[in-house]
Amino acid sequence: MSDNWIKVTALDEIPDDDVIGVSVEGRQIALYKYEGEVFATDNVCTHGQALLSDGFLEDGEIECPLHQGRFCIKSGKAMCDPLTEDVRTYDTRVDGEEVLLLIG
């Protein structure tokens, strides 16, 4: 359980300062590359029926395409209305050219 690191994608699959969506063991995950670091959250918004990977990454926050709610990609914190619930985050690790994700 403690080191359930899973390879999810190649590092160069994530464009710089942008977001992609991947599916990991049946979960929808959003992967962000921001200032050279990789972050991960659940991909489905906690508010509407939308994928955060269709949204816009700016200043370390992902803006949902549906209602412009913004989450901090590092902490998952909901930053503004209409969001009322934080989004779950995941630990990530880069191993060479691979991005790994810790699924708890």
Binding site: P15, G48, A50, D54, F56, E63, C64, P65, L66, H67, Q68, G69, D81, P82
Partner: peptide
């Protein structure tokens, strides 16, 4: 509060 696809959709970069 929000408008779906206010900023459009991302397609082919």
């Amino acid at each position: 509060q929000g408008v779906p696809f206010r900023r459009g959709v991302k397609q082919d970069g």
